[in-house]
Design a protein around this nucleic acid. Structure first.
Lengths: 193, 193
DNA sequence: AAAAACCGTTGACATTTGTCAACGGTTTTT
DNA sequence: AAAAACCGTTGACAAATGTCAACGGTTTTT
């Protein structure tokens, strides 16, 4: 089940991984299964692992003072689940990450990842690219959110991420978009007319 | 006037720059003055330069279909002005960046920066750190925006960035926060009571 | 098999925020 | 010095979104 990870990496870089490099990667990532609802990271803990999702679906969320969950990210296959802030600053995380479906992950500690990056320049390149892509996507999401109605945000999201719409229940999508489930329900009703 | 840049860099890294490295940096950044309202980057152009602000204030914004400006970022001294998306993808920028006050910059092309990074490992470290800090800040801004009222957003922003409040007019702050100038005016009135 | 939790929907209503138009006091441009 | 542009404010009103409560149909747990 490491093939997904290897082809994910190769997809990002100009020079494919050598056999030795692939072996090194396989040796350093650990396989982990999570049952539905099981935590990968809990609010208050320091994020120790980054997890590459081989199979399944997860969510990252924050719980506010009133106990309301706010979805920060949704993940499916080929996504990385982790809290960068906590992992790099070594501070307690403000987020929870848990499995929405039964999920299979390949996990690695930050220290091991650093080691690997010293040995495999390709990984450095991959990180630079994914970081960059990520930064741009975040920027766009922020902009879109600031300047568009709930309806437009939903349309845009549903258009660009149909797989998430099928995979996660509406109230999670609503929360991810920063609106209530009632509002989303009404928007969808409106749209079908 | 390169001192600001050099101390900015040194502030981020464990090992201070050597004299040779500093000389190399000074040689590769170009000094540039912008008068108030002058463009640093125009919608439709590819972003060629990254600019480190030595003195002054700038803004980055998008103009929507209706001709309304949406502020994306505000910059003052010790900030980097550029459009990462355009610069890395080499695509036409969707944003404008212009000088809000008379501004002095140290600018560098992406290619020259890459060169410098090969010669000065410290710069790579700096980039990693600033990118990381940036990604975390973006994440937090997005979260805060999605889950808080206009009033809370303004309070938070004014609390954490008093220098921006003094430096930029209210309607720019409002736009940055994703609200209208009228709403911000009313929020402030309310708050003084 | 029964009970509980989950999920989407709807109605009634409250709150937040936007829109449009107008004003007076700056500051900038001519 | 006059004209124009800019800026913040306010009122009246409209539109978007949230809140609360209730429901019925699933799915999950017991």
């Amino acid at each position: 089940m490491h093939e997904n990870l290897l082809s994910y990496i190769n997809q990002y870089v100009s020079l494919p991984l050598t056999d030795e490099e692939e072996a090194l990667i396989v040796a350093n990532f650990q396989f982990k299964k999570l049952r539905k609802k099981q935590y990968f990271l809990q609010d208050g803990d320091v994020c120790k692992y980054a997890g590459f999702i081989v199979k399944g679906a997860m969510r990252q969320y924050r719980v506010d003072d009133k106990g309301v969950e706010h979805i920060v990210h949704l993940f499916v296959e080929n996504y990385w689940a982790n809290d960068r802030e906590s992992a790099t600053m070594l501070t307690p995380s403000k987020y929870n990450i848990d499995a929405w479906e039964d999920t299979e992950l390949l996990i690695i500690t930050r220290a091991d990842m650093m080691d690997l990056m010293e040995k495999i320049p390709t990984l450095v390149e991959m990180m630079r690219l994914t970081d960059e892509r990520n930064a741009i996507a975040n920027q766009q999401r922020l902009n879109f959110t600031l300047n568009n109605s709930a309806e437009k945000r939903y349309e845009e999201f549903a258009g660009n991420h149909p797989e998430f719409i099928q995979r996660f229940p509406q109230h999670l999508i609503a929360s991810y978009l920063g609106i209530t489930r009632e509002t989303l329900s009404r928007i969808r009703k409106q749209a079908t007319k």
